[in-house]
């Protein structure tokens, strides 16, 4: 029961935050609601017993990426931009198509739930053996044993992004 209340709280906050990100006029307000949404997602991870991911989400997304976003918004903030039209010409078509996509995905989910070949085939959710070995240790073992090469590639990706960002930030390009 408590779990369910927490889930609905975080889920509602995440979705509401997401909707407000898209509809807000001022980019800083959007960023604040994106932070809300990301924090609520971190809460959802907690309800899934993924505490390491909860922390990674806050440190990297909220404490890293979003600071970058807010920083850039402040650098490029224009008062003029607030009075311009915020949505482009394809808004109605795009919105309709997106809702069609949502309806289709929801229908697919409903079908999968009702059919016998869908989710029922997967084993029922069980509590992972977090008590034996912490979630952090499990992920660490997995990352450094099974996924060493993807891990290293990810670090190279970050290096490339770092260099790219520095080049982009130079005075003249």
């Amino acid at each position: 029961m408590t779990n369910l209340i927490l889930f609905y709280f975080f889920a509602g906050l995440a979705v509401l935050g997401g909707v407000l990100v898209v509809t807000m006029r001022n980019a800083v307000h959007s960023a604040v609601f994106l932070i809300t949404s990301l924090l609520a997602t971190a809460g959802l991870y907690l309800t899934l017993n993924a505490e390491f991911l909860f922390v990674v989400q806050i440190i990297l997304y909220v404490g890293g990426i979003m600071v970058l976003f807010v920083f850039v918004i402040m650098l490029v903030n224009l008062d003029v931009a607030l009075h311009q039209v915020q949505f482009n010409r394809q808004t109605w078509v795009a919105g309709l198509l997106s809702f069609a996509l949502l309806a289709e995905l929801l229908a697919a989910l409903a079908l999968a739930r009702s059919s016998s070949t869908g989710m029922q085939l997967l084993p029922a959710p069980h509590v992972p053996a977090a008590s034996v070995q912490g979630n952090t240790e499990q992920i660490g073992t997995l990352l450094f044993q099974n996924y060493v090469i993807p891990f290293e590639i990810a670090s190279i990706l970050l290096l490339v992004a770092l260099v790219g960002a520095v080049v982009m930030g130079k005075k003249r390009i």
Partner: peptide
């Protein structure tokens, strides 16, 4: 928490927003 130290690190990194915003 079994992630106590990271939790403190994460939460205090949110303090930046108080200042920036």
């Amino acid at each position: 928490m079994n992630i106590g130290l990271l939790f403190i690190f994460a939460v205090s990194s949110m303090g930046i927003f108080g200042i920036v915003l």
